[in-house]
Computed example of a mutant assay.
Amino acid sequence: MIRWFIVVFLALLLINALTPWLQRVGFGKLPGDFRFRWLGREWFLPVTSTIVLSLLVSLVAKVI
């Protein structure tokens, strides 16, 4: 169980580190990625970007 927590923690750190680079490449600005203001905060739901990244990761996993 602790291994999964470590893996999730490291994945979140990696995503956090790669977010600025991914935004420069175009992820987060695809159609289907939602940005809105609610309760005085800006919220971001990267639906399409998540699907595209998931497909890329699964393709890489199949090749390896």
Rank of each mutant, 00 (worst) to 15 (best):
L45P: 02
I64A: 13
N16W: 15
L10C: 09
V52H: 06
S54T: 08
F36Y: 13
L56V: 11
W38A: 08
W43H: 12
L13K: 04
W4Q: 15
L18F: 13
G26S: 04
W21D: 04
Q23P: 01
L59K: 12
E42V: 11
S49M: 06
F27C: 10
V52W: 08
V25D: 06
T48A: 04
V60M: 12
F27D: 08
V8P: 01
I15M: 13
G28D: 00
D33V: 01
L39G: 10
A11D: 08
V47W: 05
A17F: 13
T50M: 08
G26W: 05
R3C: 12
T48F: 03
P46R: 08
E42R: 07
S49L: 05
W21S: 12
W43E: 09
T50I: 07
L10G: 07
L22S: 05
L39F: 11
L56H: 03
V63L: 15
W38N: 01
L55T: 00
Q23S: 03
S54R: 04
R35I: 01
L13F: 08
W38R: 05
E42Y: 10
V47K: 05
L22I: 04
F27G: 03
K62G: 15
L39V: 05
I2H: 14
F5D: 14
L14H: 06
I6Y: 14
S49C: 04
G28Y: 00
P46G: 07
L13Y: 07
A61E: 06
L10P: 03
R3Q: 14
I2Y: 13
P46I: 09
L53F: 06
A61D: 09
I6E: 12
S58C: 15
W21C: 02
L45N: 08
A61F: 10
D33A: 02
G32H: 00
W21A: 14
R3K: 14
L22T: 02
R3T: 13
F9E: 10
V25E: 06
T50Y: 01
T50N: 03
D33E: 03
F27E: 06
L45S: 07
I15P: 06
M1C: 15
E42K: 02
L55P: 00
F27S: 07
A11R: 09
F44S: 03
